[in-house]
């Protein structure tokens, strides 16, 4: 499984791997929103948590269909299915690789982009913490969605439609953590719910995704 993680990370950073795609998208959102909304500092500060979370979520969505589609096209997925690694493990590792390539850089870049959106000073710690806890859920739920559309030509659009509703709770609680934190209120309840979503998704969805892949490979 370690080998699979290393391979996926290596593929992501080599030419055409898509590393940085999500990050660039996130940057664009954070740069363009202030230009569109206007320079009022308090308006920007109020919408900053939501914008940052929506930006991170959409950036995550960009690279989801690559999780399994590339391996399906070149036959690797068939071979991984017949390999000694359990398919559930394959799904979990590929979701982890997706998170390392997209979720983690987004989390690290978010404070810098928070400056562009005039995020109140108290919110930065909560922003990083909420993204750190919430983006793994985005990757795992996304891997499940990608498993559902494996083998579907141009499945990216279908994938977005399937996955977006599942992303809503993560978005609501994630943005809530940041806005409460930025306003100086207690943010532990949405934070715990966010962590709960991530843990629940990471525990259950690899099994569902593996079942979906088995059906799609027939």
């Amino acid at each position: 499984m370690w080998a699979l993680l290393i391979r996926d990370l290596r593929l992501a950073v080599r030419a055409g791997g898509g590393f940085g795609l999500g990050l660039a998208f996130f940057l664009l959102v954070a740069v363009l929103v202030p230009l569109g909304v206007g320079p009022e500092g308090d308006v920007l500060g109020r919408i900053a948590p939501g914008i940052l979370w929506v930006g991170a979520l959409l950036a995550c969505l960009l690279s989801l269909d690559r999780i399994f589609a590339l391996d399906f096209e070149d036959g690797s997925l068939d071979l991984l299915t017949t390999s000694p690694i359990p398919l559930e493990g394959v799904v979990a590792v590929k979701a982890l690789a997706h998170w390392v390539v997209t979720g983690l850089p987004l989390t690290l870049a978010a404070p810098v982009l928070g400056v562009l959106l005039n995020l109140p000073v108290g919110g930065y710690g909560w922003l990083v913490l909420s993204l750190l806890l919430g983006t793994p859920a985005l990757s795992v739920i996304g891997a499940f969605g990608a498993a559902l559309v494996v083998g579907v030509k141009r499945g990216g659009l279908l994938l977005s439609l399937l996955v977006l509703p599942l992303y809503v709770p993560t978005l609501i609680f994630g943005a809530e953590v940041v806005s409460r934190g930025a306003a100086g209120q207690a943010a532990s309840v949405p934070l715990l719910l966010l962590a709960g979503i991530t843990l629940g998704a990471a525990a259950l969805l690899p099994f569902a995704a593996a079942a979906a892949i088995r059906i799609n490979l027939r």
Binding site: R10, L11, R14, A15, G17, D74, G75, S76, D78, L79
Partner: peptide, 11 residues
């Protein structure tokens, strides 16, 4: 081993 070899072009 199937028709597709499961090779990664960039490796």
């Amino acid at each position: 081993a199937a028709h597709a070899d499961g090779l990664k072009a960039v490796l």
